[in-house]
Design a protein around this nucleic acid. Structure first.
Lengths: 335, 335
DNA sequence: GCGAGTCGCTGAAACGTTTCACAACCCCCG
DNA sequence: CGGGGGTTGTGAAACGTTTCAGCGACTCGC
C-alpha cells in the first residue's frame, strides 16, 4: 500500500515537515541543495501527495464537474470536450456525470459532488422548474453555470443557444418549402430546450401551417424509432408531411425506422433535426439540422465558471447566448 | 460558504461528535430520540458531510475512474455506461477521464487520480508497451482492470474482445466476396487493438489477397476523411477494392469522403468498419462492421474491479475475452 | 560593530472526519 | 442487593496536509 507520507520524506531527507511541503508548493522558497535532497527522497520513496488531506486543509477541491443529460449523445461529448480544453488551461480536472435525464440520478450526483466540495459545476438540469436541490447548492456557495439553458436568474451564469430561434428557423424553412402539416417530435417538455424549440416552431407555423406534436419519453435513437410507429398508425390524410425533431438522435432514429418501413425521405416526409452532430451529415439521407456551437458552449461555460471561482471579490454573473444556424441537407429538400 | 461541520451539529443537538458520526454511519447504534434530534440539527443547519475528511481517515475514496481513448467515440460511451450501471449497484461513483490518445494527458490523469487515492481504475492505455506509469500505479496497490486489451500479466484483471479474430472475420468476408486487394486503414499501431485487428486481417488474407496499409494518426472521422485523400493519389491500378477500417468512426469518415468524391460504395470500393456503433447502421450506406459487446465490456470490467477492491483477502486476477461478431450490411455487399 | 533586513528552515496548530476504549446507565437474574 | 451484560453515549487520537509565527544565521549599510 502506498502509505508514504510527507513525514517519512522529511525524515529521510533530514528536514522538517514544513520544508517538504514548501518544496512541493513553493519551490523557490527553499535552497537549491535542500530542495534536491527532498526531491531525491520523494523519488526514492515513491511518495504521492494525498489530495484528500490537501483538500481538507484547503477547503475545496481542484475539480469541476459537468452533469449532462446523456453521455452517449455526441452533442454533450462535444460540450464536455470544450470544457476540458478550458479546464486544462487552469490545471483543474473535469469529472463527467451522467444524469440520464433522470432527476433522481441527478440529485444523487449533486449530493456526492457537494460532499466532495467540488469547486464548481456545469450542468444541464433535467428539470428546470423548481430544482430545489440545485438552488440549495448555489445558495450554499458552489458556483454553478447553467449549460444550454438561458434563464435562471441573477445568482448564476449561463451559456445557451437561442432554442426558440432554432425552432423558428426549422419551422420557417419547412413552411417555405411548402409543407402545410408539420409535426414536432420530442419530449419531455419539462426539458427547457425541448419546450423552447417547440415554441420556436409554433411561432413559425402560426397561421401558415398546421402543427401537431408527437411526444417522446426521451431524446434517443430508440425513442425516434418508436415515434414513427405512432405516426404510421395515423390515417394517411392526417399524417404530417414534415417532421421537426428535437434533436439529431431522435431524427436519426426516425429516419432509420421510416426507411425500414419504406417511407421515402424527403419525398414522403421531410425531416429536420437539431444539434448537427457529426453523424447527421453521414446519415443514410444526409440530415438537415440546426447547428449549435457545441464545443464553444462547453469552453465558454468552463470559462465563466473558472472566472467565478477565481474572482475572490465580486463576480458579475453573465448570460451568454449563441445563435444557432440552419444547415439544409437532403432530408428536407423537396425534389 | 458551507462551513458547517459535525461539531456544530453536535452542539446544536446537544450530543458529542462521535454520536453525530454514528447517526451518519451506523444509525442503528443510537437511540431513536437522539437520532431524531441529530437529524433535525443536520437539516436545520444544512450540514453536508465533508468527503475529504472522510477519505483522509478512510485512506481511499469511493470513486473509481475510467480512462478512455476518446469520450466522443460512441464505443467508449457505451463502455462507460456499462461501468456506471455496475458501479451504481455498489454505491461508488465513476469519474470519466479522456486521454485523447495522448500519453502525456494519460499520465497527467494517472498522477491526479493517484493523488486522489482513487479506489480503482478502468483503463484502455494509449500505449501498451512499457507503460511504466501504469505499472507503478499497480505496484503501489491501486487495483486496475485493463479494458479492451487482452494481455497484461498476472497482476491485474482484464476484459477484452478477441481483436485478432475480429480482424480475421472482416478479412475472410472480404476475401470470400472476391476482393483481391484489400487495404487496412488505421493507426497508430502502438494501440494494441489496432495492431491486433491488423494481424487478424493479415492472417485472413495471407496467400489469398494482397493487403496494404494506410496508416492514420488517430481513429476519428477526420482521420478517415484524410485517408481517402491519400488513396485517391494512387494510380487506379494500385488502388484496393476493399477497405477494412480499424473502427467505425474511421469508416464513416472514409465513407463520407468517398461519396463526396464520387466513389461508389460498395461498387467501387467495399468498406468494413469495427465496433458496430449505433450510427453504423444509419450511415449513408449502411456499414458492415465487427460488433463488440460494448456495454457488457464496461459492466464486466467494473465487476472485476469492484470484486478486487472488496476482496480483502486474496483476489484471483482474471482475463475475460469476448467474441466479436461480423455484421454484414450494404457497404460490403457486391452487387 | 550594530541594527535592520533577508533567507532558510522549524514546529505546532488546524482542517473535519472516523474509530475505539471506556464510562454511564439500565435491566434482569441469582 | 450485587453483579453480569447489554445499550448509549463520550472524548480523544489519528489521518496527511498546509500555513504561519518565529528563530537563527548571514549580509548590508552606516
Amino acid at each position: 500500500m502506498s502509505t508514504t507520507s510527507i513525514k517519512e520524506v522529511a525524515k529521510l531527507a533530514g528536514v522538517s515537515l514544513g520544508t517538504v511541503s514548501n518544496v512541493l508548493n513553493q519551490p523557490e522558497r527553499v535552497a537549491e541543495h535542500t530542495r534536491r535532497r527532498v526531491l531525491d527522497a520523494i523519488a526514492q520513496l515513491g511518495y504521492v501527495r494525498n489530495d484528500s488531506a490537501r483538500q481538507l486543509r484547503a477547503g475545496s477541491s481542484r475539480q469541476i464537474a459537468i452533469v449532462v443529460l446523456d453521455v452517449a449523445n455526441p452533442f454533450f461529448t462535444d460540450v464536455v470536450r470544450g470544457a476540458e480544453v478550458e479546464a486544462e488551461k487552469h490545471g483543474v480536472m473535469v469529472v463527467v456525470c451522467n444524469s440520464s435525464e433522470d432527476s433522481d440520478r441527478e440529485r444523487r450526483h449533486l449530493d456526492l459532488l457537494e460532499e466532495q466540495r467540488i469547486r464548481g459545476l456545469l450542468i444541464t438540469p433535467v428539470d428546470d422548474t423548481r430544482n430545489s436541490r440545485l438552488e440549495q447548492l448555489i445558495q450554499r456557495g458552489t458556483p454553478v453555470v447553467l449549460v444550454d439553458r438561458g434563464s435562471g436568474g441573477r445568482d448564476r451564469c449561463s451559456v445557451a443557444v437561442d432554442d426558440v430561434l432554432g425552432g423558428r428557423l426549422a419551422g420557417e424553412h419547412l413552411v417555405a418549402t411548402g409543407h402545410e402539416h408539420i409535426a414536432f417530435v420530442g419530449g419531455p417538455m419539462s426539458i427547457q430546450q425541448v419546450a423552447d424549440r417547440h415554441r420556436g416552431v409554433t411561432l413559425a407555423t402560426k397561421g401558415t401551417a398546421r402543427l401537431s406534436t408527437i411526444a417522446t419519453p426521451s431524446l434517443t435513437v430508440a425513442a425516434g424509432r418508436a415515434a414513427v410507429a405512432e405516426l404510421a398508425d395515423l390515417p394517411a390524410a392526417r399524417r404530417p408531411t414534415a417532421l421537426f425533431c428535437a434533436n439529431d438522435l431522435l431524427a436519426l432514429g426516425v429516419l432509420q425506422e421510416a426507411t425500414k418501413r419504406g417511407v421515402r425521405v424527403p419525398d414522403d416526409v421531410a425531416i429536420v433535426g437539431y444539434d448537427d452532430i457529426d453523424f447527421a451529415a453521414a446519415a443514410a439521407v444526409p440530415l438537415s439540422s440546426v447547428r449549435q456551437p457545441r464545443e464553444q458552449l462547453g469552453r465558454t461555460a468552463a470559462q465563466l465558471l473558472l472566472e467565478e471561482t477565481e474572482a475572490d471579490g465580486r463576480h458579475e454573473h453573465r448570460h451568454v447566448v449563441f445563435q444557432p444556424e440552419l444547415v439544409v441537407r437532403e432530408s428536407s429538400t423537396r425534389t
